[in-house]
Nucleic acid binder design. Structure first.
Length: 363
DNA sequence: GAAACGTGGCG
DNA sequence: TCGCCAAGTTT
């Protein structure tokens, strides 16, 4: 059956009207529930692009609560993209330590240097151009363009996926539904206020359309939400079943010289905890090397295993790490840096290594 | 497309 | 205790 042209245009008008309605409802809600966050220091479109970008990089897969102290510290150390571009890698990694996903920090500096050296310190305004920069993917490109420049882009993050999946009862599995959600989000863009719209949709997802315990009664879209109407809100978004995490095990070494200094190594520039500092360690594998085998390189020294082991969970595996204390008799030369215990806190140590160090020091 | 890539909080 | 989850990008 073919619709008449009149019928089609009528449908387009109705669709457009209801989308406008949704957009207006969302923006009205946003105006009443505006959150005061450190990076929201001016109206959308009038923000400092460097600060917007810095916040968006940090907020990738990371909660607002975790980001705030890091954001403030970075801004105080490196107030401009030029300042960050001139920073040393080591200082960036130190300041990022504990925030996780360290490739973000490595790409961030790379991006800052590109902006400073190749773009006269000015961020591109269009999402399409931002997308070419290191560490900036589809989400961040759209977010920076919308929030810093009021560009007509709709960032789609986990909040947006969840909220729109519920609003339209979208059955597609994450993350295959990304294109569909992107089209829905773009269709809802207002004529102006793209930046407010971006923040509004993400705020709605994080504060109202929460993963668990959503507050549907507070939602401006309650009358339009298909999942709510069907009483199946928690069934969206549809997700593939999670894979089981394997457990890997290893030994880390607390190696001290007679003066009490301890040996740290910088990890390789890519891969897990890349470019961060840590205790020397055996590889982390599913089969644990025996104590005797692990201490072979230190056969002439006194070696003692701390009781128990530390547990830590990464994105794709659990880790059980045993700690072996090695007390060297003299100032043996070894690859790495010797650090006084009091100076450990200033090193670029990821959380798992801080945990291992605490375990070694209390044993 | 799938896997790698951190961490801390919450129920 | 433990699985789930949070403002994704890269390879």
């Amino acid at each position: 059956m073919v619709s008449s042209p009149e019928k089609q245009s009528f449908r387009i008008i109705v669709t457009t009207f209801s989308q406008t309605h949704l957009t207006d409802q969302l923006l009205a809600w946003f105006d009443q529930h505006h959150r005061d966050l450190p990076w929201r220091d001016a109206a959308c479109g009038k923000r400092n692009p460097y600060r917007v970008w810095l916040a968006e990089i940090m907020l990738q897969q990371t909660t607002v609560t975790a980001v705030i102290p890091y954001y403030l510290n970075f801004l105080s150390k490196w107030p401009t993209v030029k300042a960050m571009a001139e920073a040393e890698d080591k200082d960036i990694m130190r300041a990022w330590a504990g925030l996780g996903y360290y490739a973000r920090a490595r790409n961030m500096v790379k991006c800052a240097r590109f902006i400073a050296d190749q773009c006269q310190g000015a961020f591109p305004r269009a999402a399409q151009d931002l997308l070419k920069l290191p560490g900036i993917g589809p989400y961040t490109a759209a977010a920076v363009s919308a929030i810093a420049f009021n560009g007509a882009s709709a960032p789609v993050d986990g909040n947006v996926i969840r909220t729109l999946s519920r609003l339209y009862a979208l059955d597609a599995l994450m993350p295959k539904n990304k294109d569909q959600i992107q089209r829905k989000a773009t269709a809802l863009l207002p004529q102006d206020r793209s930046g407010d719209f971006a923040e509004a949709l993400m705020d709605l997802g994080s504060q109202v359309c929460r993963p668990k315990n959503p507050d549907c009664q507070a939602c401006p879209w309650i009358k339009s939400c298909q999942a709510y109407a069907g009483n199946v809100v928690l069934e969206f978004p549809k997700k593939a079943p999670k894979k089981l995490k394997p457990t890997r095990r290893g030994w880390a070494f607390w190696i001290t010289r007679p003066n009490g200094h301890v040996l740290l190594e910088q990890r390789p520039p890519k891969g897990l905890l890349g470019r961060m500092m840590g205790l020397p360690s055996t590889p982390w594998e599913e089969d644990l090397a025996s104590f005797d085998r692990a201490i072979k390189p230190f056969s002439a020294s006194s070696c003692q295993a701390c009781s128990g082991f530390i547990k830590h969970t990464f994105t794709h595996f659990h880790l059980e790490l045993g700690i072996i204390q090695v007390s060297l008799e003299g100032d043996v030369e070894m690859a790495g840096v010797w650090v006084a215990p009091d100076d450990l806190e200033t090193e670029a140590l990821p959380s798992v290594m801080k945990k291992a160090i605490a375990h070694a020091q209390k044993s």
